[in-house]
């Protein structure tokens, strides 16, 4: 008897090429996350303005931070580092830019999980005056600094995932796994 597991079990069975597989996997997973996010939106709404408002003290009922707020803050810090490093070390752009795109996708996913659709997304300030400032002059050292930050952020995401409510465990787990993948590239 031949099991139809590969055909019956969902995403991936009908992919035609490696590139397609990558793209479709992303879409599929985002669709899955969308389901998770949808269920979380109401519960998370109270904390939606916490980061964007720089403290979120405008209304007592809205001052409770989302459990995802630390993960979002850590992601934005990572994005700032990537942006500054690419500005200060353009030779690293080819390596860092695709990984930066992953981090930006994490911001989108975290914002979606935290806030109702009408809320302004919280994102990094691109092209900030400090771009490139503080980046080590040696490309190898600059890359090592990014790797160290990525590793710390991965460890943080692992802790967040292990401690998370069930509704947030999948998103935080995906972010942690993605950062682990990045560590293999940041060499």
């Amino acid at each position: 008897m031949v099991s139809a597991y590969y055909d019956a079990a969902g995403a991936g069975a009908k992919r035609s090429a490696g590139g397609d597989a990558m793209t479709r996997n992303g879409r599929t997973r985002r669709a899955v996350l969308g389901t998770v996010v949808g269920g979380a939106t109401l519960a998370a709404a109270a904390g939606c303005g916490w980061l964007g408002g720089g403290g979120g003290s405008d209304a007592g009922a809205r001052s409770k931070p989302s459990p995802l707020a630390p993960a979002l803050a850590a992601t934005l810090t990572l994005i700032d580092l990537y942006t500054a490093t690419m500005a200060g070390q353009p030779s690293l752009t080819g390596k860092l830019d695709p990984l930066l795109a992953d981090h930006r996708a994490h911001v989108t996913a975290l914002n979606a999980a935290m806030a109702p659709a009408s809320a302004a997304p919280t994102g990094p300030a691109t092209g900030s005056p400090s771009a490139g400032a503080g980046v080590p002059p040696d490309p190898a050292e600059a890359l090592a600094a990014v790797r160290a930050a990525e590793q710390a952020a991965r460890d943080s995401a692992v802790r967040d995932c292990l401690a998370a409510q069930p509704r947030y465990a999948s998103l935080l787990g995906s972010i942690a796994a993605c950062r682990s993948c990045h560590l293999e590239v940041l060499v």
């Binding site: 490696g18 590139g19 597989a21 990558m22 996997n25 992303g26 997973r29 985002r30 996350l33 390596k95 695709p98 990984l99 795109a101 992953d102 996708a105 994490h106 996913a109 998103l171 995906s174 972010i175 796994a177 993605c178 682990s180 993948c181 990045h182 293999e184 590239v185």
Partner: peptide
Amino acid sequence: AVRAARWRRVAGHVPGTVALP
């Protein structure tokens, strides 16, 4: 996720990572 990314790199897709594995 790490092994999938490695296989994508073997297939020529660099860096082979996806945002939400």
